[in-house]
Structures are given as C-alpha cells and as structure tokens.
Design a protein around this nucleic acid. Structure first.
Ligand SMILES: [Zn+2]
Ligand SMILES: [Zn+2]
Ligand SMILES: [Zn+2]
Ligand SMILES: [Zn+2]
Lengths: 134, 134
DNA sequence: ATAACAAACGTTATATTATAACAAATTAAG
DNA sequence: CTTAATTTGTTATAATATAACGTTTGTTAT
C-alpha cells in the first residue's frame, strides 16, 4: 500500500513549528536564529526545509517581504492560488480566504493564449487597527 | 508656474533606457553591468534610480524574480495596480492589461475591514510558444 | 543674484537573502 | 539485504539590497 509521503522530516518539522507559532511572517535568518538551539546550524538547512514546506503547501512565501507564513487555508494545499493582505503600517499579513476571488482568478484568461496554473496576489493597505490610529 | 518635476535625472534616464530596451525583466546587477560604460559604478546608484522609477510608475518590480520591467500600461502610472503573466519555462514576463481584472481587484473587499490601496498579482503558467514545444 | 532647502550623486563598507558543491546519514521500496 | 531516493551536515560563496557620509546639483522664494 504505497502510502503517500506525508511525514515531515526532523528539520522540516522544526522549521514548520516555528512558523506556525509565529504571529506573522518570518524571515529565513530569523527562523535560523530561532532553531539554532534545536540543532539547525546553517542557512541551507532552513532553506531546504522551507522549499519542501512550500512545495507541499504548508507554508507560503510573501514575495514582497521575503518572508514565510503558515498556510491557514486548506484550499491552497498545493500553493497554486494564494492571496494575502498586507498592512503597510504594522506589516500585519493575513492570508485571504475568499472563494469568489479564488474562483475568479483561477479561471482568469486573457487574450495571450496562456492558461495560468498558479497565481500569487498581494494586497496592500492599512489594517483596521492602523486605520483607527491614523 | 510650479511645473511638476517630470524630468528624470541622468542616472534615472540611463537606468530607464536600459530597462525599456530589454525584452524581459532585468536584475539590478545586470543593469549595473550594462550601465558601467555610462559612468554608473555602484549598486546603490542603480537601486536609487530603480526606487524612483518605481515610485513614478515607469517600471515595476517582478517580486518573484527580483527583477525590473518597464511599464507598458499607462493605467498603472502610480504602480498601484499591477498584474503580470510569467512563463515558468522561458521566463517570459508580460504585464497584463485587462480592465475587468483591474476593476475587480481595485474594488475588492473582504470581511477584514481593510480597504486596499494597492495590489500586485503574478500569474504563472506556460506561454503559448512553450506550450507548443511541450 | 543669493540664500535656503530638497533631491540626486558618489563612494565605501556592510547587511541580508539565497545557493553551489560534496560527502555522509537516513529512509523507503523491491 | 540491496538499491535508490531523500535528507542531512558543512563550508564556502553568490546574489540582492541598504547604511552612512559628505558633496553636488536643482528649485524656490526673497
Ligand atoms: Zn494557504
Ligand atoms: Zn496595521
Ligand atoms: Zn504598468
Ligand atoms: Zn515560455
């Protein structure tokens, strides 16, 4: 019974747990600093774990910040359809779960003859808290 | 007659002209290499020009590639609403001009209480040429 | 014209983000 | 067990980006 590899390796588990505990996105070298007490010593060990975690959809990369956040949305398990809201003031980041949006974008076609298999969308603005403080 | 500063500085002109001539997005250090014969010697000179050009909407940054591309779309002069299609095979990048899409996204609201002022969207897939060659 | 201010420049050094290369250890499958 | 594939550990280095500082140039108002 060829059971699909769902088990994460030790380093992958360590890195994932740090990211899942975090309130916001973490940068690779901040993750490294956080896991050094657990035996991970080199950047590459972190980047390799990140690569795998992204591949299986457990985390996403916030491209505009070079930072990594846990997926809270079982809909994008394969990291093919991601959308985030990012506060320009407090840098708060949230994954957007919106079926209409994801359907709209997943089905989007233009006149280029290109069929899109994946997208990443980042919205920027002021979060509720920061809007009040202005 | 307080005429709005629309004149680009020397370095900004040099960097912009390189980016406009290019077929695809250029990386900062590749731009640097290209402009060294024109007197620009240091990365910071390039990055400062890039920053300004982005600010005034002449170019955009392709976040997933850390590369810069000229704006072909007068609709996003202020770089507040950008969308690109990116070929996973040949890395061809094209700015998407689609009024429906940009209206949909500019007006998008979710239940977060956040009003978005800016977005960046990157689609990935195979371009027409690469699809044929598969 | 000239003083005052803002924007752009030049330069050196350094910070931050990410990957190459290689060998050893671990895990999954036949 | 054997073989193949994945993961690991390690060192070194590549690629991307900014800090800090002083100078020069361009704009604006008197
Ligand atoms: Zn997700
Ligand atoms: Zn905020
Ligand atoms: Zn544009
Ligand atoms: Zn292509």
């Amino acid at each position: 019974m060829t059971q699909k590899q769902e088990q994460l390796s030790k380093n992958q588990q360590i890195v994932l747990s740090i990211i899942e505990k975090a309130k916001g996105p973490l940068k690779a070298y901040s993750i490294l600093y956080n896991v050094q007490k657990r035996g991970i010593k080199a950047p590459l060990q972190v980047y390799r774990a990140l690569e795998k975690l992204i591949e299986i959809g457990k985390i996403h990369k916030i491209e505009s910040k070079n930072a990594f956040i846990a997926c809270k949305n079982s809909d994008c398990e394969i990291s093919k359809a991601t959308a985030f809201s990012i506060c320009n003031n407090c840098e708060h980041v949230k994954e957007i779960k919106n079926t209409k949006l994801s359907k709209y974008l997943s089905n989007f076609e233009d006149n280029s003859g290109m069929k899109y298999k994946k997208y990443n969308l980042e919205f920027f603005g002021l979060c509720k808290d920061c809007k009040l403080k202005q």
